[in-house]
Design a binder for these strands. Structure first.
Lengths: 183, 183
DNA sequence: GTCTATATGGGGATAGAC
DNA sequence: GTCTATCCCCATATAGAC
């Protein structure tokens, strides 16, 4: 809410970057503090624990997932609804911090075991797959549905040397995802 | 080579399990030693460092990838070769320890940054995607190719409550992967 | 091949001054 | 809101006896 970027936000940004690049456990609070030009103790003013930093990063992700799931639950199940779920999910991922947070969690799956907020995201992701599926689905169909969602996460990490805008990547991912969700 | 399971092998097994379940950094050598009923120092007789345990786990994975890539390089590029690459990759993944090692690496991506053998696997995986592609591929096509390979990794983690044998999972994954590779 | 004992270092976290 | 100083714990790793 402050006029310029406050320290709390800068901590989140640096932490997210280091957690993603070097790993959650491998990143020490000292390191984060050094980059920001403050001391460890200063971090503890803004966040009570290292886990709290992670929790703060996940909050708007959880809210977005909850909203999408709630919307989906109100729709009739069917191909068109499935496609629209993917579109909304993709649109949501396009936000700047959003897919960065998902990437961070993907790359640190084990290290984040037991973090309560991370478990919530995992649970919501499972729920999202559930609303994308139907009772009689075969294993192959379930796999396709899961891969459709996953494709939307992967758009940024494939062909990294390719020149492509975010929009082009989302469009490509959505095309592949929609093809997978047809089955 | 010993008659019964030697300590070295048992260390590898326990380490792989804990690294996968709890995370690489979160798993201490003390913990591994305790489970095996030996001391930390005993581990250091078999492996010079913690990294060495990881390196030992990756070795046959690297060999398998090298062999597949070499085979692929000798074939004419085309749809049939691409399908056969997927089939061979899938068959290889079916081995007991194999996909466990890949899962371990997937779940600990960031923690394993800089481990030399792990970087080799990363490099070989990129190379595998390269032989699966062709010069003029669009972003969408590249994405589909990458997702095809990735699907073969994911077969075990989708619909975990579903009763399915390894063979059924591989078959389903291969079906999805082959569909993706057509494009 | 495994042990005890220890070196060495860094981690997260806290107290209390400014 | 940030600092200095410090606590406590556990990590990897090593030395040397058995």
């Amino acid at each position: 809410m402050g006029a310029q970027k406050d320290t709390r936000t800068r901590i989140q940004e640096v932490a997210l970057q280091l957690f993603t690049e070097k790993g959650y456990e491998a990143t020490s609070l000292r390191e984060i503090a050094e980059i920001l030009g403050v001391t460890k103790a200063a971090l503890y003013y803004h966040f009570r624990t290292k886990e709290d930093i992670v929790a703060s990063l996940t909050e708007d992700r959880i809210a977005a997932l909850d909203e999408l799931i709630a919307w989906a639950a109100r729709q009739p199940r069917g191909p068109e609804t499935r496609r629209e779920i993917l579109r909304r999910y993709a649109a949501d991922m396009t936000g700047p911090r959003h897919h960065a947070v998902m990437r961070f969690m993907e790359r640190n799956q084990t290290a984040l075991r037991g973090h309560s907020k991370v478990e919530v995201i995992r649970e919501r992701s499972t729920e999202l797959l559930r609303v994308l599926g139907e009772p009689g689905d075969t294993l192959t169909t379930s796999l396709k549905r899961a891969m459709a969602v996953f494709t939307l996460h992967m758009a940024w990490f494939v062909a990294p040397d390719t020149e492509a805008t975010d929009e082009e990547r989302v469009a490509a991912a959505l095309a592949v995802a929609e093809e997978l969700i047809e089955g």
